[in-house]
Nucleic acid binder design. Sequence first.
DNA 1: CAGTTATATAACTTGATGGATATCTAATGG
DNA 2: CCATTAGATATCCATCAAGTTATATAACTG
Lengths: 100, 100
Amino acid sequence: MDLFEAVAEPNRRRILDLLRERERPAGELVEALSISQPGVSKHLRLLRETGLVGVRVEGARRLYRLEPAALADLEAWLAPYRRFWGERLAALERHLETEQ
Amino acid sequence: MDLFEAVAEPNRRRILDLLRERERPAGELVEALSISQPGVSKHLRLLRETGLVGVRVEGARRLYRLEPAALADLEAWLAPYRRFWGERLAALERHLETEQ
DNA sequence: CAGTTATATAACTTGATGGATATCTAATGG
DNA sequence: CCATTAGATATCCATCAAGTTATATAACTG
């Protein structure tokens, strides 16, 4: 599973969003996600494998944290498009100004 | 199919990348993609349905163009993470400076 | 008009994905 | 220790996505 597919799944995006705030134990993510505990565990494994999250064992709990560097490839792919729609927006703005 | 899934597929990303340069007829995309013509046609339909590309009929050909505004939701999702890994990089830089 | 070219649609196959339940492991608390 | 809690792994199932071949549609071309 590559980065793009990892991020395509809504529950996984939700997990990442939650971890953006702070490190969380798996159980907390289970509560947040309305799918089964093994389901969440599976998503967490995938996220680990793609490098998007890291884990830290603390007693019986596993604390998951965001590993945002793994999003670099997505960012890199998107970057050239950003410029693109920036141009569009700029054009629209110019148009609106002219209209006034 | 939502935006994230649309972009998760490598052939579709390739199509978008090609259309970033310029408008192209479907056939040109078929040549570039090493999958069958109907395969490409199917991807183009999905990309149309998610608003990522637009078409223009010119005689027997369909000219596809990029519709970059449709990437806004992806951009919006990614944005808060960008700040995040900026912080990390900054922290690393500070660390390296301290080490020296 | 007949044949060819460009593209879309239909039907089908296959593999991967996401979910569930059941079970295993390891740590905690009494 | 034993029961409980936290989480991972195993297995199974249904769905879906992506590819293929075959066929339909429509526009050019001689």
